[in-house]
């Protein structure tokens, strides 16, 4: 019997998951929740995500969180504390540590160095 098409196309399924994650980025996602959305067990899900994206599900999520944070840091009108929570870090300390480890900058240094002061 022909299987449901949603169990065939991982790129498309992952795209939908990614969209859901982005729409609820402030939520503290667990791997269990993500795997359930795709309809796979945790192990199979993690393996599939790793081979497709190169990242574990939680690292992929951090990737999205930091990318979104960078966009907000490049706007002057949002506070760093708000950015941390908006993109899903549980504290601004957690945000600052993760951000610095990856980019070498703290979020506020990054903002200062990347955006010239404008009127």
């Amino acid at each position: 019997m022909r299987q449901n098409n949603s169990r065939r196309d991982f790129p498309q399924t992952f795209m939908k998951l990614e969209q859901t994650l982005r729409e609820n980025l402030s939520h503290q996602w667990t791997v269990e929740e993500m795997a359930a959305l795709v309809g796979l067990g945790i192990t199979a899900f993690s393996e599939k995500v790793k081979s497709f994206t190169g990242f574990s599900p939680l690292n992929y999520l951090i990737n999205i969180r930091i990318s979104e944070a960078i966009k907000l840091l490049k706007r002057q009108d949002v506070h760093v504390t708000d950015i941390a929570l908006d993109v899903g870090f549980y504290s601004s300390q957690h945000f600052a540590t993760t951000f610095k480890k990856l980019t070498g900058y703290t979020p506020s240094e990054f903002r200062k160095k990347n955006i010239p002061v404008t009127d």
């Binding site: 990242f55 690292n59 990737n63 999205i64 930091i66 990318s67 960078i70 990856l102 980019t103």
Partner: peptide, 10 residues
């Protein structure tokens, strides 16, 4: 930004 962060991360 996602491309940039992915590049740094990898």
């Amino acid at each position: 930004e996602q491309i940039f962060i992915t590049m740094l991360y990898v």
